[in-house]
C-alpha cells in the first residue's frame, strides 16, 4: 500500500475539528494561553450545534471579556460591571423563548455583582450564568479578587492574601447551589481537552434545562491568568491544577432531579 501523505489527509471529508463558524475571525484580545478563548470556543460550538444563533442573546461583563461580542457571532448586550444578571433577567422575562446567557469574571460576578448574582439565582431566572474564575482581576492588571486564594500574591495583596484582613475566597457556586432557584450548578475547567469536553457536555445540559424552563444554570469555569499570575501559560495551568482545583473542586454541585 502506498504511503499516505499529509496532503492526502487534509481534505474536507477528513475534517475532524475546526473552530466553530460562530467564532468570528477577529483575533482574540486575550493574553496567550488564557482560558477565556477556550471557553468562548466551546460556548460557540454549543450554540452552533444546538442551532441557537437566531435566538441567543449574550450579556458580556466588564473585565477581560468585555469585548466578547467581537468574537462570537450572536446578539450581545454589554452590561455595567456586575450587572449582567439584571440585564439577563429582563431579557428573558420579556422574551421567554430566547436563549439567554451571561458571561462574567470573578470580580464582576462575585464582588461588585454579588447581589445581582444571588437574587437572579434566587428568582430562578431561566438563564445560563457562565462564571470564569481565575482568582484575579485580569483586565485592570492583576489585583486581588474575591476568589484569590489564601496567601496568593496580587498587585493589591503583594504579601499574599491575608484572610484575617481580607476574608477567605468566596465560593459562589456553592452559595448559589443552596438557593432553590438554581437547577444546575457545576464547576468545570478548560485547561485540558478532557476538561473542555466535559464543559461542553455541561453547556449542552444547560441549554436543555433552559429550554425546559427549569431555573438558573450556573457553570463555573476555574481558569488561569498567566499574565496576572506572572507565569507562562503552561506553568499557570499546572499551578491551577495544584492550587485552584483543591480549593475549587471540579464537578457537579447540584443537578436537577430527573
Amino acid at each position: 500500500m502506498a504511503e499516505i501523505t499529509f496532503n492526502d489527509i487534509i481534505k474536507p471529508e477528513n475534517l475532524a475539528y475546526k473552530k466553530s463558524r460562530l467564532m468570528t475571525d477577529n483575533i482574540l484580545s486575550y493574553c496567550p494561553g488564557c482560558g477565556h478563548g477556550t471557553a468562548h470556543q466551546v460556548l460557540a460550538e454549543v450554540l452552533e450545534e444546538e442551532n441557537l444563533q437566531e435566538r441567543t442573546i449574550g450579556i458580556t461583563p466588564v473585565g477581560c471579556s468585555v469585548l466578547m461580542y467581537n468574537y462570537i457571532d450572536v446578539d450581545f448586550q454589554e452590561a455595567a460591571h456586575g450587572r449582567a444578571p439584571a440585564l439577563a433577567t429582563a431579557v428573558k422575562r420579556l422574551m421567554p423563548d430566547k436563549f439567554v446567557f451571561t458571561y462574567q469574571g470573578d470580580g464582576d460576578l462575585a464582588a461588585i455583582g454579588t447581589a445581582e448574582t444571588i437574587h437572579t439565582c434566587n428568582r430562578g431566572e431561566n438563564i445560563l450564568m457562565l462564571f470564569i474564575n481565575n482568582g484575579i482581576y485580569g483586565m485592570t492588571g492583576g489585583q486581588m479578587a474575591p476568589t484569590t486564594l489564601p496567601g496568593m500574591k496580587s498587585s493589591t495583596s503583594p504579601y499574599g492574601r491575608d484572610v484575617s484582613m481580607m476574608g477567605s475566597p468566596i465560593k459562589m457556586a456553592d452559595i448559589v447551589a443552596m438557593l432553590p432557584g438554581t437547577c444546575y450548578v457545576t464547576r468545570q475547567s478548560v485547561n485540558t481537552a478532557g476538561g473542555v469536553r466535559k464543559l461542553k457536555r455541561a453547556l449542552k445540559k444547560a441549554v436543555q434545562y433552559q429550554n425546559e424552563k427549569r431555573g438558573t444554570c450556573f457553570i463555573e469555569v476555574v481558569s488561569n491568568c498567566p499574565s496576572g499570575w506572572k507565569m507562562t501559560p503552561v506553568e499557570s495551568n499546572k499551578w491551577m491544577e495544584e492550587h485552584m482545583f483543591p480549593f475549587y473542586p471540579l464537578g457537579d454541585i447540584k443537578v436537577p432531579a430527573e
Binding site: R83, T89, A90, R93, I118, H119
Partner: peptide, 23 residues
C-alpha cells in the same frame, strides 16, 4: 412584565436589558 428588583441598581439594569431588546 412587572418585577420588584433586589435594588434600584438592579432595576435600572433590568431596564437596560429590556431596552436593549427594543422593548
Amino acid at each position: 412584565v412587572v418585577l420588584q428588583a433586589e435594588s434600584e441598581v438592579a432595576a435600572i439594569n433590568m431596564v437596560y436589558g429590556g431596552a436593549s431588546c427594543g422593548k
